[in-house]
Design a protein around this nucleic acid. Sequence first.
DNA 1: CGACTCTCCTGCTGGC
DNA 2: TGCCAGCAGGAGAGTC
Length: 272
Amino acid sequence: MPELPEVECVRRSLSWVIGERITSVDIRRPDVVTGDCSPNGLLRGQCVVGLRRHGKQLALVSEKGTVVVHLGMTGTLLTVQHGHEGWQQDRHVHLRWRTGKGACVIFRDPRRFGGVWALKDESALSDHWRLLGPDALTITTGQLIPRLGATRQPIKSALLDQRVLAGVGNIYAVEALHRAGIHPMSVSRHLDARDVQRLARILHHILREAIRAGGTTLRDYTDSLGVKGGYALRHRVYGRGGLPCKKCKTPLADIRLAGRSTVYCGSCQVLL
DNA sequence: CGACTCTCCTGCTGGC
DNA sequence: TGCCAGCAGGAGAGTC
């Protein structure tokens, strides 16, 4: 499931598209698109000049329009080389961009929690991303302190709230809280400056480490070239409910918080 | 207004 | 072996 590291790996693996012109766009499911879902709205005829990421969102920027892709849970952007037409039988492929050289980018999303926004230009992108908090990879302690201080939400819920900071999903939230020794039910504004600093450092560290490993593949995730991520091997708590904590051997608790499974160590992680 | 819970969607898993 | 309920999850909508 794509969180910040996976989206960043998709972005990097898609860099070949920069400088390419989109010659045609196939729209199989217009309902995954918000905004102008015509081929022109989706960059037909435009040259891709950049790929930008904020949190879990990826933007294909052209001279004119910009397309933002959100991968949701099961979404992928895949590079398909000319001659490999197997995707045509795949009912989960919703969009396809064809480039001048014949290579394509396809948007595939079985569960359709993801989606695509067609925006007029890069200033519309700024507006779109203004709703999100600072990117989790670069957020500073100084930015995080007032944002966590403003809410009584449990810290786990706050980390998942994209308006607080952008890019953290369930996996990296539970991993970061375990390494920081903070109980997921801790009230966000009870964290003191040192707690927040430690949490920010750990988030940066984990996210960078995960990007280096190619992201987390639980089952399906790959980057745009089909490469799986190796970071799942490094998970210490996610998916390990009931198993011994890797630090202290206490069986890990598995509860539901903010509607999602939340694994933590009742011994290592302090309730604040 | 803030903090919950519900809903969307499909594929895999586990129990009978 | 086959069927189906249950579960997974991000984020926006709805509720209290």
